[in-house]
Simulated scan of single mutants.
Amino acid sequence: MAGITNANLNSIDKVELINIPKISDPEGRGNLSVVENNTLPFEVRRVYYLYDVPSDASRGGHAHIALEQCLVAVSGSFDVVLHDGKNKKIIHLNKPNKGLVIPSGIWRELENFSSGSVCLALVSAVYDESDYIRNFESFKLFKGG
């Protein structure tokens, strides 16, 4: 975890809520949303999703050194609690055509899951345990605090 990287410099201001293109069916048969290579600021290398999370449970509780990700509430809703080592922000996700892009070096926790919610994660790298910072005090040291 030593050294200065973009992750050290990233702040809450770099977190971005993006629109995911939504195509409405003219015959009223529902909507379709599409994520293509130009939708996100990174290439998707892994996709996973969280579901059946109890409303009183918390997920996440870590930061990444290099990985970037986009979270989408494809069903239901949940809160994303973000921290950059100095500032904290909570973003409520509840629309399947909105994605929360989280750069590297931002602590995240997911909580307040509604019944039936599904969180889709589109990420920039395959799983690598060495990319995780799982202790908040270690995270603050990583950020220079």
Rank of each mutant, 00 (worst) to 15 (best):
Arg46Phe: 01
Gly28Phe: 10
Leu40Lys: 06
Trp107Val: 15
Lys14Trp: 08
Ser138Trp: 06
Leu82Ile: 12
Leu9Tyr: 09
Gly76Phe: 04
Ser33Val: 15
Trp107Ala: 10
Phe136Ser: 05
Tyr132Phe: 09
Ala2Asp: 10
Cys70Phe: 09
Asp56Ser: 13
Leu100Gln: 11
Asn31Ala: 15
Arg29Lys: 15
Asn37Ser: 13
Pro103Asn: 02
Val53Asn: 04
Ser115Trp: 10
Glu16Thr: 06
Asn19Ile: 14
Ile106Pro: 12
Ser55Met: 09
Lys140Tyr: 10
Ile106Ser: 10
Leu100Cys: 07
Lys86Pro: 05
Ser124Gln: 01
Gly30Leu: 12
Leu32Cys: 10
Ala63Lys: 07
Leu110Asn: 01
Val53Phe: 09
Glu27Trp: 12
Glu137Cys: 07
Lys89Asn: 04
Ser117Gln: 06
Ile133Gln: 00
Ser104Asp: 08
Gly116Trp: 03
Leu122Lys: 08
Tyr49Ile: 14
Glu43Ala: 12
Val81Phe: 07
His92Ser: 09
Ser104Cys: 13
Leu82Arg: 08
Lys89His: 05
Asp13Pro: 00
Leu50Asp: 02
Ser138Tyr: 09
Ser117Thr: 08
Arg46Met: 06
Leu122Asp: 02
Leu50Thr: 03
Asp56Asn: 14
Lys143Ile: 01
Val123Glu: 00
Val80Ala: 10
Leu67Ile: 11
Ala63Gln: 06
Ile102Asn: 10
Ala66Val: 03
Cys70Gln: 07
Leu71Asp: 10
Asn10Cys: 12
Gly28Met: 10
Glu43Asp: 13
Asn31Arg: 09
Phe113Tyr: 08
Arg108Glu: 02
Ser58Asn: 08
Ala125Gln: 01
Asn37His: 13
Asn8Val: 12
Asp56Pro: 00
Lys143Val: 01
Gln69Cys: 03
Gly85Tyr: 03
Phe139Arg: 03
Tyr48Pro: 04
Gly60Thr: 14
Phe113Gln: 04
Ile133Phe: 00
Ala2Asn: 11
Lys14Cys: 07
Pro41Val: 02
Ala2Ile: 00
Ser55Tyr: 08
Asn10Asp: 08
Ile4Lys: 11
Pro41Tyr: 05
Gly76His: 05
Ser124Tyr: 02
Phe78His: 05
Ser33Phe: 15
Val53Lys: 06
Val72Thr: 03
Ile90Glu: 12
Tyr51Pro: 13
Ile65Arg: 01
Glu27Lys: 15
Arg46His: 01
His62Trp: 07
Ile106Asn: 09
Arg45Asn: 14
Ala66Gln: 02
Leu82Tyr: 09
Asn94Thr: 01
Phe136Tyr: 14
Pro103Phe: 07
Glu129Ser: 15
Arg46Ala: 04
Leu9Thr: 08
Tyr127Ala: 12
Val126Phe: 00
Leu141Val: 13
Arg59Asp: 04
Val15Ile: 13
Gly145Thr: 02
Leu93Arg: 11
Pro54Trp: 06
Ala2Met: 07
Pro26Trp: 09
Ala125Ser: 00
Tyr51Gly: 14
Ser11Phe: 03
Ser24Pro: 06
Val44Gln: 09
Asp131Ile: 15
Arg108Phe: 00
Tyr127Val: 10
Gly144Tyr: 14
Asn97Gly: 03
Asn38Gln: 14
Ile90Gly: 06
Cys119Thr: 15
Val81Asp: 10
Ile90His: 07
Val74Ala: 08
Gly60His: 05
Leu82Asn: 10
Gly61Thr: 13
Leu122Arg: 05
Lys98Phe: 13
Ser24Gly: 09
Val81Gln: 06
Cys70Trp: 11
